[in-house]
């Protein structure tokens, strides 16, 4: 019997810029540009080497990455679609909590 794999909570450990780029399968410059343009989140300091990201940031940028790649979407459009999908998830979660079907 092997020991269980210890999972880290990304909200606590956070991600570096390099980890974020690897998680998005993107170049570091792409992540830096999207942080400025579409992530709409305050980051401590101007030096990207000190930036730290949450799991929510990772999910959001991965989604934007896929939308840009699959549909040649401009970053702002990809961010808008990501916003709408997040809103859809919030509403679906509320329906589920209320015991209602999401379909």
């Amino acid at each position: 019997m092997t020991d269980p794999i210890v999972a880290q909570l990304v909200e606590e450990t956070r991600l570096t810029l390099e980890e974020m780029a690897a998680g998005c399968r993107a170049e570091i410059d792409w992540v830096v540009a999207r942080v400025h343009d579409v992530l709409a989140r305050e980051l401590p300091g101007a030096d990207p080497a000190h930036w730290r990201f949450s799991g929510t940031d990772l999910l959001r940028l991965r989604r934007i990455r896929a939308l840009e790649r699959d549909f040649d979407a401009v970053p702002e459009l990809a961010a808008l679609v990501a916003d709408l999908l997040e809103e859809l998830e919030r509403l679906r979660a509320r329906l589920r909590r209320a015991g209602l079907s999401v379909d």
Binding site: I5, V6, A7, Q8, L9, E11, E89
Partner: peptide, 18 residues
């Protein structure tokens, strides 16, 4: 996979298995 879940994880959060 056998995974040790961090206490207090919430809906929509991300956990990492290094």
């Amino acid at each position: 996979l056998e995974v040790r879940i961090p206490k207090g994880v919430r809906e929509g959060q991300v956990i990492r298995l290094a």
